[in-house]
């Protein structure tokens, strides 16, 4: 398959990329391309211009910054998977990144690309939501930060303006314990349902593919905070979710999986 024609511009800096984006309202940012190019090949997306930020050298890093871990938007899934710092400080991200797609996808796809795409079925956005990450966004008028809880707006819709670029993701440390459950039929496939659970002094739980955006499992979190058992909390896991039916699962089965996987993820927390 071939994408429709588009113009291609390579940005050397974030500022240059923003200028390029401002010049064409149908322009899209290209990072690793592993969310965007598949859609373009199927002609489900036909941007007039791609602004390639892949060569901006200072956007790929994982570093400690106070009690947070700062992750450059161009950091690839493979880099998250193998980062020793991340394994020590935010191990859930290493684990989640290591199960995205397949190894070749992980060599190209980036955390920024996946997050900016905002797919409720993707793994990293849900993990960032559970962690209460902060998105650092740069636009024509400078930087702003958006909490993960406000970042994912709707189906493939985020808080990013068309001329803004996600440059960094800041993740709190302290969530040393985690549980991750990804249920799919083939290893390479998207999750039919996934659950990310992280624990510091509190337990946060989020869902993959239980709605148009990544979702916090609020009912579970509230029950746990009120002292409920894992079983009790898991039994209401699907409250507040809005899963859709597709060829892999019905709505009811997704709700059931949500309950089972929450219980398993919570059990992994120990």
């Amino acid at each position: 398959m071939y994408p429709s024609s588009f113009e291609y511009a390579r940005a050397a800096t974030v500022a240059e990329a923003i200028t390029m984006l401002s010049s064409d309202e149908d322009a899209k940012v290209l990072a690793g391309g592993h969310s965007l190019i598949p859609l373009m090949k199927l002609r489900l997306a036909s941007p007039s211009m791609l602004v390639d930020i892949g060569r901006i050298s200072d956007l790929s890093y994982v570093r400690k910054d106070g009690d947070q871990i700062a992750i450059g938007a161009l950091t690839r899934h493979r880099d998250l998977e193998t980062s020793e710092l991340l394994a020590r400080e935010v191990p859930v991200l290493s684990r989640v990144a290591g199960q995205i797609g397949d190894p070749s996808v992980r060599h190209a796809g980036t955390i920024g690309g996946s997050t900016a795409h905002g797919d409720g079925a993707a793994d990293l956005p849900a993990a960032l939501l559970a962690l209460g990450a902060t998105m650092v966004v740069q636009g024509p008028s400078g930087n702003r930060t958006v909490p993960a809880a406000e970042f994912f707006k709707g189906f493939l819709e985020t808080a990013l303006a068309p001329d803004e670029i996600l440059t960094e993701i800041r993740v709190p440390t302290g969530f040393s314990k985690f549980g991750f459950q990804k249920f799919n039929r083939r290893a390479q496939d998207w999750a039919i349902v996934g659950v990310v659970a992280v624990r510091s002094d509190r337990t946060n739980v989020s869902f993959i593919n239980m709605g148009p955006t990544p979702l916090r499992a609020s009912a579970v979190e509230e029950r746990l905070a009120a002292g409920a058992s894992v079983e009790e909390a898991a039994s209401v896991a699907d409250e507040g979710t809005s899963p859709s039916a597709d060829i892999n699962a019905s709505v009811d089965y997704r709700r059931h999986l949500a309950r089972v996987l929450v219980q398993r993820a919570l059990s992994e927390l120990g």
Partner: peptide
């Protein structure tokens, strides 16, 4: 045409990628 099969896998800077999901420009 969906990055699923891997028949197009090559090494890019020494690491496997699916060359159907990478622009020549990249």
């Amino acid at each position: 045409d969906t990055s699923s099969c891997g028949a197009c896998t090559v090494l890019l800077d020494g690491e496997s990628v699916k060359s159907c999901t990478v622009l020549a420009a990249q």
